[in-house]
Amino acid sequence: MNKKQIINTLKLLGFIIVVSFIIDKIAYFTITKISDTVYSGQAIGKLNHYLAIKDTTKLIVFGSSRANHHIDVKKLNPSSYNMGVDGKFIAYSATLIKLLPKDVKQTVILHVDPNVAYREYYNREETKTLMVKYHTNAVIKEELDRAELTNPLQNFYWCIDYNGLVLGILKNAVFPKYDLEHYYGYDPMEVHSTQKEIFKKILERNDSIVCKTNLKLNPLFNTYLKEIESFCSNNNKKLITITTPLYIDKCPEDNNALRKILEDLNIEYHDYSNFFENKNSTDYWVDIAHMSNVGAEIFSEAIRKDLSIND
């Protein structure tokens, strides 16, 4: 390798680094500008919507798809929002709860899933979708750094914040799906024929269920649970935990164990896993863990009476 080759090689590599950095920043700020106007879609839109209403809403539901599709929050309180999102668990919820205003009286309903609580491997990977706010929100940045989920190149290539989300952002910017005036985060699911067929086949399969015997609370779940409890009790929030129905729950042991832990932490807990029991119907379900709009409406009506948090 002669001197000229070294210079040419360094020039090319330097050029790539500089140009890719500049292109990255142009793309990042353009996408951020578009993204901030998006209020549709689960990944970004809902997060933006949440950030817009979190300070003025009295009741907010957090959790996974089961929170999102099962709880019609308007039945619980007129000033409410359902921040349940598909595939999001306690780490995601904890991060969002920590964004709530400190001195405003609010009710936090957190959906807890014993299946996640007692999962051997839970790496809070779902919080990755909060990456879109990595360079713009200090609390989110701190949580993501703590979770060690960031890409080492992310501080150089900021567009990694939007990894996997750009097309969704563009689509939702061009074709906004929700009526923001009336949308409050609850997404009831209508069952179409293909889904119904799949669900029937799953039921026919009659898969055997093995209940967990070693019920050891996942340490990360435990940490976040305590953090949520601490944040809520110190910041004027009423915390209620809830487990929404399953088509059938043959393993009540984990729910009972979780109940004990929540009681020890003085956290209110309502377990509705077997809510339908003998009154069950496949019309209430999309799959074994998710209720249809029909099931969700029945359930929401029932918890409205049960939870008594209408004020």
């Binding site: 140009v19 292109i23 990255d24 990694i160 750009v166």
Partner: peptide, 21 residues
């Protein structure tokens, strides 16, 4: 050319950043 190559590779890096799985 080195400039075209640098530009193309930079665009590929951008696509990778945005869409890698």
């Amino acid at each position: 050319t080195p400039i075209k190559l640098g530009a193309v590779v930079s665009v590929i890096i951008l696509l990778i950043s945005l869409f890698y799985s």
